[in-house]
Design a protein around this nucleic acid. Structure first.
Length: 356
DNA sequence: AAACCGTGGAT
DNA sequence: TATCCAAGGTT
């Protein structure tokens, strides 16, 4: 069989498999570009199981681009709370306003134009253009990299510039030009359901017969990645200060983790601080006293950093005794009834549940 | 171009 | 427990 026929059969087999095995997902019913857009942003680096409830709540609150554009950024972030990668929510909101104000509410209909919107990169632009507007462009996400690197037993690292170009070209060769929407979603369903990272279900795979990795029994060796990550540690010491039923809270402004979300006054350090050291840092200014750490230590693992979190409760009446640590700069006293509307990071959400 | 951005689940 | 991974994008 020559190269052309091989590729044609690959495409046919994938499409046929999709017809009877595709997942029943809410954004597949209609191909409203707005709904496809929301689903694609939510599902970036996020599994369907985790993103689905967020998609349902989000689209109920903001059924169209006008509703989203009307909302405040805080409302959008609040609905995103707990999902992570909050720049997705901020960019989505900014882009929605862009569509309403600059494009009169009309979504861009080509990959090229979609790429101009904040938060829409090569993958998402191709997904919306192909699914909603039938443009013959291939999506290349983690699923596609994994499936193609195994099918061709290609050792080109998927996180290298050369590897990305290679697999992008491959995906476009294999793409069904007549049914790009089905083909793209078929590739992703295949990657999520059959060609999984661990223990792929090769017995159920429609293209297993020509899969080079399987022929070599080397499925586990693909895909290849070149980069190695090392971690740094950060220590977040949160000061919980209550005053007449109100709590000090501040909004994270810097370009850093949890930008735009609210938290307690924070003393951050590169090394672990003892409770005595924290007390001293606060007491030296205000003579405030603290109880023992309120909760057990929590640890957050990101790709490249560990964040260790401790909470300290301050006993003294801060409002009457003036300035405390500069951790309180920019902090505001908020009633508990207002507090529930603030978007907060997961660890803060957990802490608040125990306080309120 | 390498680093950075969250959270939950699997191994 | 440590590491990897998931419908990536931005700087």
């Amino acid at each position: 069989m020559d190269n052309f026929l091989k590729m044609t059969s690959f495409t046919t087999n994938i499409l046929t498999w999709y017809q009877s095995n595709q997942r029943d997902l809410p954004w597949r019913a209609e191909k409203d570009p707005y709904l496809v857009w929301i689903s694609e942003i939510i599902l970036q680096q996020t599994q369907v199981k985790q993103g689905l409830p967020y998609y349902l709540r989000f689209t109920k609150a903001f059924p169209d681009v006008y509703a989203l554009a009307r909302a405040s950024e805080q409302e959008v972030l609040k609905l995103w709370q707990g999902l992570g990668y909050y720049s997705r929510a901020r960019n989505l909101h900014a882009a929605a306003r862009d569509v309403v104000e600059r494009l009169k509410g009309q979504m861009p209909e080509t990959k090229k134009d979609l790429l101009l919107l904040k938060g829409i990169g090569p993958y998402t632009a191709a997904a919306i253009a192909s699914i909603s507007f039938n443009e013959p462009v291939a999506v290349v996400d983690g699923n596609v990299y994994r499936l193609l690197s195994r099918y061709f037993a290609s050792s080109l690292p998927i996180d290298s510039t050369e590897g990305r170009k290679h697999f992008d070209a491959l995906a476009h060769q294999l793409l069904s030009k007549s049914r790009p929407a089905d083909f793209n979603q078929a590739m992703m369903d295949m990657g999520a359901m059959i060609c999984t990272p661990a223990q792929p279900k090769c017995n159920d795979c429609p293209v297993a017969a020509e899969c080079q990795a399987r022929l070599l029994s080397q499925q586990a060796l693909f895909p290849v990645k070149s980069k190695t990550t090392r971690k740094r540690n950060r220590y977040f010491n949160y000061l919980i200060a209550e005053n007449k039923g109100q709590l000090f809270m501040s909004q994270r402004q810097k370009k850093d983790i949890w930008k735009g979300l609210y938290e307690f006054p924070l003393i951050e350090s590169e090394k672990e601080l003892t409770r005595a050291e924290i007390c001293q840092m606060v007491d030296s200014v205000s003579q405030a006293s603290m109880t023992t750490s309120l909760m057990s230590e929590t640890k957050h693992l990101l790709t490249h950093q560990n964040i260790f979190i401790r909470f300290y409760k301050i006993q003294q009446d801060l409002h009457l005794n003036g300035p405390i640590n500069r951790a309180f700069d920019g902090a505001r006293l908020l009633a508990k009834s207002e507090l529930i509307h603030l978007p907060v990071p997961k660890p803060i959400e957990t802490a608040l549940k125990r306080i309120l």
